[in-house]
Simulated scan of single mutants.
Amino acid sequence: MAISELKLPQGVQAHEFRTPTLLAEGQARAVAEQLRGAIAARGVATLVVSGGRSPVAFFQSLVKQELDWSKVVVSLADERWVPVEHADSNAGLLQRYLLQGPAAKARFIGLYNAAANLEAAAEQADRLLAELPAIDVLVLGMGDDGHTASLFPGSPNLAAALQVDGSRRVWPMMAPTVPRQRLSMSRALLASATFTVLAISGQSKLTTLNAALAGDSLATMPIRAFLQPTLDIYWCP
């Protein structure tokens, strides 16, 4: 199966690359172009990215793009509720692979804090994100279970986090894998992005995306919430 064979919603753009390296480079060029446009228009650009291991090559390529990072605000679509020093921390991942060299000048707004419990951490992150400017670029990934950010099927707060008009910015979420405790931006906040990229690799992810397109349930396939005309899909076999 190729991404060109999928029945994508009108307005959704698909970009196919031969290798993960070419995908990362193409994605980085497109994101940098959007950020430069936002800086030219408003003097600042906001980039929200997802964590995990998949985006590392993209981060490394993005750092090499011509961009005034001092005018960029970076935040995370989701975070594991672990200290930044922990190997599973998304903020730590950004520090190692994105916020380096010229990109170290960017302003980073993280989600993690050492609150008494996950709910309190989510409430504090929600207040902190009141400082987040409008999102110019959002970069999402997708799991084989159809989750994106940390909007996991079966998580107790999923229905509330997926509300289109919800006022809350961050929700405590539970993942099926360790570390289970997560923080995730809400659908309402994520969907406010001007330009959204979904980056996926491999046939299994394409099969999951095809199932999401054919289904009708956000509860079982949260990625469906973002299959909108503002979406660009970047895929390689």
Rank of each mutant, 00 (worst) to 15 (best):
F152N: 06
Y112C: 04
Q181W: 10
A120F: 04
L132G: 15
V197H: 14
P83I: 11
T148W: 07
R180L: 01
P172I: 15
P172A: 08
A103Q: 05
T148K: 08
S192N: 14
P133M: 10
G143D: 04
M173G: 03
G146Y: 07
D144C: 03
M174W: 05
D144W: 00
Q100C: 12
G141H: 02
S184E: 11
L94A: 13
A87C: 05
Q181M: 12
A122Q: 10
R187P: 12
L162F: 10
L94C: 08
A193I: 05
T194E: 11
H147Q: 04
A104Y: 02
P156K: 04
S167I: 10
A193G: 04
E123W: 02
A115L: 07
A103W: 12
G166Y: 05
T148A: 03
S167V: 15
M142R: 02
S184V: 12
Y112L: 00
A104K: 12
A120P: 06
A188E: 07
A191R: 15
A134W: 13
L158C: 01
Y97R: 02
Y97K: 02
E131L: 09
D136V: 11
V139I: 14
M173L: 09
L129V: 14
N113P: 08
S184L: 12
P156C: 10
K71G: 08
A103L: 09
F195G: 01
A161G: 02
L99D: 02
N113H: 11
P156L: 12
T196N: 08
L98G: 05
A193N: 00
N117K: 02
V137H: 14
D136M: 08
A130R: 10
R168P: 13
A199G: 09
G166W: 06
V74L: 06
N113F: 06
G154I: 11
V164F: 13
G110R: 07
F195D: 14
V197A: 15
V170R: 02
W171Y: 15
M174V: 14
V84G: 04
Q203C: 06
A115S: 04
Q95D: 14
P176L: 00
G154M: 00
L99W: 08
S192E: 14
E131G: 09
L140A: 06
N113A: 11
L183Y: 07
L162R: 10
V164Y: 03
P102G: 07
P102I: 15
A125R: 09
S204W: 00
L198Q: 03
K205C: 12
A161T: 00
L151D: 10
P176K: 00
V137K: 10
A130D: 13
